[in-house]
Amino acid sequence: MAKITLSINKKEFPMEADPQMPLLWAIRDLTGLKGTKYGCGVAQCGACVVHLDGEAVRSCVTKVSRAVGKQVVTIEGLSQANDHPVQRAWQEIDVPQCGYCHSGQIMSAAVLLRENPNPTDQDIDYGMAGNICRCGTYLRIRKAIHAAADMQKKTATKG
């Protein structure tokens, strides 16, 4: 066990944790932020995706020690008012069914859109292939990412 501090969604969380513990469980059980999900634990499903210094990582296979001194952003911190373009697009198109996979889907999509503000269907498929949705919301995910891209453009031209 070691005393460490995580910076999550711009807040400091001092904790005592096994440095080997995956970031996923530190976030979920030691800070009580339950938005990041456990789906497989072996980097297959993407339910656990968070941003580590802006990069999308699977927190189930990222040791908590790797996150020390870095900025972690979870679904709860993606936006203040649930209004990141990806979140808005998800709401407009009613993407989620059970919703369990969508913390991870949204976190992946947010990075995809930042890196590629104008993705084609193929870019989306490529960027989102690491996220499983058992309820099968894939067609809406694709549609929503296009919608989010449009929203982003509009805000950019306005701004």
Partner: peptide, 16 residues
Amino acid sequence: LLRLDTPLKTNGSAVF
């Protein structure tokens, strides 16, 4: 109509 539970599922606040 849009689903009532969707916003809860886009910001991690839905409690599974």
